[in-house]
Design a protein around this nucleic acid. Sequence first.
DNA 1: TTCATAGTTCGATCATAATCGAAGCATGGA
DNA 2: TCCATGCTTCGATTATGATCGAACTATGAA
Lengths: 233, 233
Amino acid sequence: MKDGPDIARLAALIGDPARANILTALMSGKALTASELATEAGVSPQTVSSHLRKLEEGGLTTVLKQGRHRYVSLSGDDVAQALEGLMGLAAGRGHLRVRTGPKDPELRHARVCYNHLAGERGVQMFRAMRACGHLALDGDAVTLTDTGTRFVTDLGIDLAELEKSRAPMCRECLDWSARQYHLAGTLGRAMLTRMEHLGWMSRASEGRVITLTTQGAARFDTLFMPDRASQSV
Amino acid sequence: MKDGPDIARLAALIGDPARANILTALMSGKALTASELATEAGVSPQTVSSHLRKLEEGGLTTVLKQGRHRYVSLSGDDVAQALEGLMGLAAGRGHLRVRTGPKDPELRHARVCYNHLAGERGVQMFRAMRACGHLALDGDAVTLTDTGTRFVTDLGIDLAELEKSRAPMCRECLDWSARQYHLAGTLGRAMLTRMEHLGWMSRASEGRVITLTTQGAARFDTLFMPDRASQSV
DNA sequence: TTCATAGTTCGATCATAATCGAAGCATGGA
DNA sequence: TCCATGCTTCGATTATGATCGAACTATGAA
């Protein structure tokens, strides 16, 4: 009995170490060049060329050519979502790197997941916004409430700009480290960008770790603590 | 940069066709013997023995020995969840079997997903129960309401029995065919079992298709149509 | 125009792992 | 006890696919 989608082919695409490293690097949401990805994966340019072709043919990545540069990115949110799901299962089953790097705790604390905030901080933010009634849930749908609209507008987010996009504004994304949900979608992205702009947090030039400044952490905790968020609004 | 969980190893486990077939068969929620899985995967007993060892070591399956029989099952809901996520991505990317069998539409309509109802029917049920206020959502948490308690009790479900289990009673499970959520957890399982008992639907002896009787479909639609469910309670 | 850089294609190499025949062990039934 | 059945282990075979050196194409800058 062989029915339903063919997960073997898709999983085999992800199951090569070099390709897994490429996909993981692309989880930052950045579009990276083939050369950068060759460095990330630790293989030669010719090898990465071959891998990228397979990923593109499999529908996991898209490529944008600009002159002699080819910018590669994940082909959509759903790829990121499935990868996070695999990460969650891998973490839950103890499938960890042999050498857990010094960045592991930092990744768990705060990291970028396809351009939005993930890790403990991401979960904290999502939970606080729900607790304060800024976000409402209806099944799989997450919507911004009236108080939420005021909240994010006060924070400096241009909602009119977000509404121009056809992508969902709010979406739940299962966090592999916290095993809870954090906020994805265009609003999730805008929140991270805004907090970077405010100087609360910054992304490393390489990798996915997000670092909060001392002041940024304080401001973040002020805004996103459930029993304190009400007072600030 | 090689950080976070090792998805390559896990994906490679799933990425072998024989093992993917095994895991897909186990999505029915039944515990199957090694011989049955050898038939499912279309390989010899010695090959399946080798594959099962890998899946068990990887934490994806558990084995229960009874005499000379070894009963294999998925090691948890989270495995089923990640597999469904991969199925969704595979379906969305057109990674389908070369020969889409005659069972494909039936699988999309109603199928068993780790012992609970999936497919269009599963989504319909979950949606209707939320619309009628029988289920309440708070982030990732799904809870049975007072009206929901009465509803399922009237349907013949023994909630006291369900509450004895440590497993979550209600959980959302993303449906690969419908791209929406259906109800999982012990309640989701109990609902399917109950409707089978009422003769509304039955599982094929092999595979995961669920067939509704004419009368069963009528009763199902009566109970789980959002604008009609209120009248029946 | 020349040179440097980004990236692809070709083909050979080689490591890996799925596969099954043969043999053996464990269990159950007559 | 003997035979049948379920399952595992061992070892050889073979197909697959990742890999990179060599060579090439395309683009950009001086």
